[in-house]
Amino acid sequence: MGTAISLDLADELPAAVLHELAEDTFDWLREVDARFSTYRDDSEVCRLDRGELALADASDHLRAVLECCADLWSATDGFFDAYATGRLDPSGYVKGWAAQVASDRLLAAGAPNHCVNAGGDVRVRGHTATGEPWRIGVRHPWDPAATCLVLTGTDLAVATSGVYERGHHVVDPRRGTPAVGLRSVTVVGPDLGLADAYATAAVAMGEPGIAWLDRLPTPWQHAVVTDTARLLHSRTLPVTP
C-alpha cells in the first residue's frame, strides 16, 4: 500500500501463537495490497478501472469496498470520491479498512490487546504489554520529529490525512484541483475505514471541512491543523499531556 505497517501484540501468549497471529495479519495486508493497489497493473482495482474486469466478476471484498465508497460519497456530499483523480482509487478508505479488518481478526483470534499502525492510521484495542492505555502521537505537520497531540485510549481508531509528506495531493472533486486550507485532519472513532475516509473528505473540503466534522455524531471526534497553523479539536478528544 505504499506505506510502512507495524503490529504490536501485547497479550501474554506463547511465542509460536504470536508469530502465527503476526503472519496471518501481514498475509491479509499483502492480499489487500495485491487486490487494491493502484501501482500494480495486475491488481483488481487497476483491471476494473481499465475495463478488463467486470464488477460482477470482482471479489467480494472489492465489491464491498466500492459499495462503502458509494455510501461515503453520499455521506460527504461528494467530497469523498473514489474517482476524484479521474481514475478508480479507493485508497482513502482501503488503508483504514484493511487495518480495521486486521484488528477485528486479531480480536476474534483471542488477541484483544494490540495496536495496528498502517502508515499513521492506527487501531488500538485493550492495553499495552505494561497494562497501560495506548498512547498515539499525532504528527506535527511541520516538524516530522514532533507531535502536536497525543491521544490515549483502550479502543480507538485514529486516522490522519495530511499534506505534509506528499504536498496538496488530495483533490477537491468539485474543482478538480488540489484542496487547500487544511494541513492535517485527524479523525477518531470506532471504525478505522470510516475515520480514514472522513479525514480525507475533510481535507478535500478545505476549511469548510471543520464545520462538517463538528456535525458528525458522537462518538466521532477530530483534530485539525489549518494551513495557517491553527490547531482545533473536539472538546471530548482523549488528549493527554
Rank of each mutant, 00 (worst) to 15 (best):
E52F: 12
A54D: 09
A56P: 00
D57G: 04
S59T: 14
D60F: 04
D60K: 01
D60A: 08
D60I: 07
H61G: 01
H61C: 02
H61W: 11
L62R: 14
L62Q: 01
R63I: 08
R63E: 11
R63W: 15
R63S: 08
A64C: 06
V65Y: 05
L66W: 10
L66P: 03
C68A: 09
C68P: 00
A70H: 14
D71G: 15
D71V: 09
S74T: 07
A75C: 09
A75S: 15
A75R: 14
T76I: 09
T76V: 12
D77G: 10
D77E: 11
D77W: 04
D77S: 15
G78V: 13
G78Q: 10
G78A: 12
F79Q: 10
F80W: 11
D81V: 02
A82K: 07
A82I: 06
A82S: 14
A84P: 02
A84M: 07
T85H: 15
R87L: 08
D89G: 05
D89Q: 03
S91V: 12
G92Q: 11
G92N: 06
G92T: 07
G92R: 08
V94P: 09
K95E: 05
K95I: 00
K95F: 06
K95W: 00
G96W: 03
G96N: 12
G96A: 07
G96H: 04
W97Y: 10
W97T: 06
V101G: 00
S103P: 00
D104R: 14
R105M: 01
R105Q: 08
R105N: 13
L106T: 01
A108V: 01
P112W: 05
N113A: 04
C115N: 01
C115Y: 00
C115F: 02
V116M: 12
A118F: 00
A118R: 07
A118C: 04
A118T: 00
D121N: 11
R123E: 04
R123H: 04
V124N: 10
V124P: 03
V124E: 04
